[in-house]
Amino acid sequence: MEKALEAKVEPEVILGWIEKIGGDSSSTVPLLQAVQSEYGYLPREAMDLIIQNSDITGSQAYGVATFYSQFRLKPVGRHIIRICHGTACHVSGADRLKTSLRHILNISDEEQDTAENGSYTIEEVACIGCCSQAPVMVVSEDVLGNLSGAAAQRALKKHARQNDEIVTNIL
């Protein structure tokens, strides 16, 4: 993965959030959510700043960050694709969306979920509640339903064109 994806953390930003959201132990989740919404993941530096400047302990921060599926400890691509793996999506072929998107993003290493060029990260998420449009995926903010593998590829390519990203050129 490209080094450029590592976020540069500004201490003032983090301290600002602690000020705004609170520094008590119940602010753990919202604070981490704020960090992730800013950087796309939880940079270690940001976590350390939270621990040093609030009541949240290292054990709590790390425990919570690894517990909830929303949080990521590694940098992500510039855009995130969330593939819904709800029951309806599962029975109508969510797996195929994954296969087809990984294919055009050229992600073959099982351990990886981000394209080599740092463009997209594929996440599997629990149900996003659009079961009657299954299978569904969310590219950045756009919810797309009733997809086939090929339709998902088309949608991704469209998104890529609009955002100056490169995906493998097929179809």
């Binding site: 709800g86 309806a88 149900c127 509640g129 079961c131």
Partner: peptide
């Protein structure tokens, strides 16, 4: 926290 995959009443 409508977590059941396949339910979306609460969302609606």
């Amino acid at each position: 926290d409508e977590g059941d995959p396949g339910a979306f009443m609460d969302r609606s």
